[in-house]
Nucleic acid binder design. Structure first.
Lengths: 99, 99
DNA sequence: GATACTGCTACGGAAAGCGTAGCGCAAGGG
DNA sequence: CCCTTGCGCTACGCTTTCCGTAGCAGTATC
């Protein structure tokens, strides 16, 4: 037993709770994007933060750099997209409920 | 047409991207919790931030105060839990893959 | 009245995020 | 060769968010 590591769900919650992480994954859902494309897609997020998040996501093995097309989701990252499907569906109902 | 509102998915991403939001929802998944119970469950998060997040979640109609048991998920909030199921399953595979 | 809870606010310092400017590099055109 | 263009990314100073601690007002119990 490797002693009290935080549960898996907490680790991913902690990662997804950082600003722009979920958005970046979403923007990469279909095709790889370059640094500047990603920056534009995220509404002009500052390059400092974008770069930090890309390092976070690389360390988590959710993205990797696929020259010369830019950044792309790893297989593991693509699997995470299954979460976005129910989330997207729920979000539409949610927005309607907010009136 | 009410002009260019951000898509529903972006609105929920923005909310979930704030620190502690996902964690609070997770901790409320089974039973209502009081302010201090919630604070303890979240590893001692500062009351300033916790209170701010509770306001955020109330405004988003995902929780409400159910005296005297504390805070609880609304029906809408409970629906959001469907997202946590695949997320939790994926997270376990993810942690294993990280080695 | 004293004790022990509760939800929550106040405040100062630390960390995260932002906006802008610009560097070093590579490719393409004259 | 130089000049421009676009790239990934870094530097820097400012603002916002977050944190840790202390403590207040309210309620219940003794």
């Amino acid at each position: 037993m490797p002693a009290h590591e935080p549960p898996a769900i907490f680790r991913i919650i902690e990662l997804l709770g950082r600003k722009w992480i979920m958005r970046i994954i979403w923007e990469l859902r279909e095709a790889p994007l370059t640094f500047r494309q990603l920056q534009a897609a995220c509404g002009g997020v500052s390059p400092t933060v974008l770069n930090a998040r890309l390092r976070d996501l690389e360390e988590a093995r959710l993205i990797h750099k696929a020259e010369p097309n830019g950044y792309t989701l790893t297989p593991l990252g693509k699997e995470l997209l299954v979460v976005y499907q129910p989330l997207n569906a729920w979000a539409k109902r949610w927005v309607k409920a907010l009136g």
